[in-house]
Design a protein around this nucleic acid. Sequence first.
RNA 1: GUGGGCGUAGCUCAAUGGCAGAGUGCGUGACUGUGGAUCACGAUGUUGUGGGUUCGACCCCCAUCGCCCACCCCA
Length: 424
Amino acid sequence: MKPTIQSVKGTREFYPEDMAIRQWLYGKLRQVSELYGYQEYDGPFLEKIELYAAKSGEELVKEQSFVFPDRNNELIALRPELTPSLARMIAQRQGELVFPARWWSFGPFWRYEKPQKGRTREFFQWNIDQVGANSPEADAEMIGICASFLKSTGLTADEVIVYVNDRRLMDEQIAALGIAEDQRKSVSKLIDRRDKLSSSAWDQSILDAGFTSGQLAGLKELLDNKDLWKKSTELTRVFDALEKMGVSEYVRYNPQIVRGLDYYTGVVFEAWDAGAEGRAVLGGGHYDNLVADVGGNPLPGVGFAMGDVMINLLLEKYGKLPGFNLYSAAVLVTVFDEALRDDSMKLAAEIRDAGIRCICYSEPAKLQKQLKYADRLGMPAVLVFGPDEASAGNITIKDLKNRAQKTLPRAKVIHELEQILAQA
RNA sequence: GUGGGCGUAGCUCAAUGGCAGAGUGCGUGACUGUGGAUCACGAUGUUGUGGGUUCGACCCCCAUCGCCCACCCCA
């Protein structure tokens, strides 16, 4: 059987078993967000294109957004990220909000990219930001939230690592090499690519971009200096705070982390599979100007975003996804024949009144078929209600897990069911 | 945007120019009131789509659609 209309390329279909994973993930990140005292919020899924045009980076807006004209010929984008919407929401109520504002969100985003491993056109993203704080300790709190979340999923420090850097530090160091400010962006891009090219090819790309061999040597020295952070008072405080928070093992300095988004102005960080391959699982940083850019008074912030696709791949790779009970109902009430159908329905209603999820089989059918149905759905228990039980005022209750069954007076059934379900 | 791979039963895949198959799942029965095992029987296909070559095409050629992987880029 072929569907006549295909799903839109890169969109997601969450079958119940996929939905269970998504909800589990949502539960994990909500728990961590709330533990750190953050409040849940959300923005519009549709935004005017101009919101992103300002600061998100040209590539993101021009190449990677779903954009279409509405009936009024206004260009509308399906949101490719949340931070600009957040900045606007903050700016709109800047006078009444309590700062620092600690907010988090989890919802769908869209980017018009070519789908491949770890990347879809529609994805869910966790966003968490602290707006109105401007200290290395606030930045560290955000990195600590990353680490706490990763830890809460069961990922160990051997499996995932959060790399930290600071753009100000890199800008100073690069400037000291005699590289002009307008060249820094292209340097950043080249730094980003260093792990993808061979050592000699990367060297050549630096020279091809017009930098001197002296500058190349200086760059390499910078990027190989794992102690470079000690030259930054901010990063020194960040790592100190992370130690106090007890998450140092998940965090490491990495001078190659620069990030693509234009709006980051200070500390930046990314989490990666420690097994090297793939791409960043999450990323974020400190931004000073975003609120002002959408019309508010200047207000700094720090935050990060994590997509559901990469983290799921990672959790799957390291076997961290739990098994889920997918059954929708705990109990099936069988329907023996037409004559007993009404009684079965009444019995099922009684079970539900006791707060137990219950399905009444939809039609009279062989017991074999009804039991198989319950079994296939993974249901823990079945209530068999046939003529023998009906005439004696009994119910037969079957525990599908251990294959045991007993026939009891109807009044005792709910208690017995609760016993079985407590062990399921 | 560039390059590579793949589309055959519900699913996973065989069949390299000569009668479209297996495993699994599904249905029925063995078992007339009992699910995971076993056995038997049964059903399922315009071989993604359209064209071409050929006596003959799942197979070769062209086009097209879809999926996957990598590059680019990455929030």
